[in-house]
Amino acid sequence: MNITMTVNGKLEHLECAPGDMLTEVLRNAGHVEVKKGCDTGNCGACTVLVDGKPVLSCSYLAARADGKEVTTIQGRVEEARRFARFLTAEGADQCGFCAPGFTLTVLAMREELPNPTETDIRHYLAGNLCRCSGYEGQIRAIRNYLEANHE
């Protein structure tokens, strides 16, 4: 079947099978910044925004994205670079595989929660697993990033 969606602001006509999930369809269209981790809905690596909301693309039916706006990390690259500086400063990034999904979730959180507490941050990011960092550095980086945005 044919579907049309706006990916990072550009209209794309894509072909998919009715049962395909969004990760596969985006990656086949060249959006390899969308990572496939567990492919079972557990790790958050595949996170994209659909109409502004963070979803797991591995668990989102591609056919349902027809007519919708999809944002991958490439669509928010300036903010991602800025956030990455805070991650680096805390030594919170190693292999980087989780970073696209994790960063998009942080950006979504910033938009959804005006003043998140540390508990809110941990709760919002509970679905983003990172096998390298141990999380503490990520939490510090997020706090520093949010504070810098407030200033």
Partner: peptide
Amino acid sequence: VCHVVGVQLRNI
């Protein structure tokens, strides 16, 4: 519902 994996799954 709030314990089910993460926000990205709970949006689905």
